[in-house]
Design a protein around this nucleic acid. Structure first.
Length: 152
DNA sequence: TCTGTTATTGCGC
DNA sequence: GCGCAATAACAGA
């Protein structure tokens, strides 16, 4: 399968996407980069016009991928809501520490909404920059109501 | 194997 | 509030 790649904008950051067909292989946050074509779902999500990436799926939810159970548990968190590391750990049958480990190794942030996983007594962490997580959560809570209105 | 690493948690002070 | 131990899983030596 031939892979395609593109870059789109999110605030001060650029989002790099690598995909093939309906499968997203990698999502990364970049400081610099020439903007180019990405799946429409990305630009719509990043501007608050869409709450899912359907029909695109992350490569990380398939069984052969390490931590796929954790990634599946994370990917069902609804738009604009959050869960704690321990809640995810319970669903996936593992330990909160492992969830944190899996989130850091998450190949496809946004598709696997790891920014919706927060620590019990704070926001938790985010790689490469905690500000991205804060921006995403702020953006989702801002657009949550209007998106619900469109759905109903 | 053993060690270091990791975006956590909860208990004791 | 802060320090610390317990905890699961992986990579590299």
């Amino acid at each position: 399968m031939e892979l395609e790649k593109g870059i789109c904008r999110f605030g001060l950051w650029k989002v790099g996407v690598i995909w093939g067909g309906n499968i997203i292989h990698k999502v990364s946050f970049l400081r610099f980069g020439e903007e180019s074509v990405v799946p429409m779902q990305f630009s719509q999500y990043l501007s608050g016009k869409k709450d899912s990436f359907s029909p695109y799926k992350s490569i990380a939810v398939f069984d052969e991928y390490p931590y796929s159970g954790i990634y599946r548990a994370v990917s069902v968190i609804p738009y604009g809501e959050t869960k704690t590391y321990s809640e995810i750990a319970q669903v996936a049958g593992t330990h909160p520490r492992v969830v944190g480990f899996a989130m850091k190794r998450n190949p496809t942030p946004l598709i696997i909404p790891c920014h919706r996983v927060v620590s019990k007594n704070g926001i938790g962490g985010f790689t490469p920059d905690i500000d991205i997580k804060k921006e995403l959560l702020k953006m989702e809570s801002k657009y949550k109501e209007s998106l619900r209105f469109i759905i109903e």
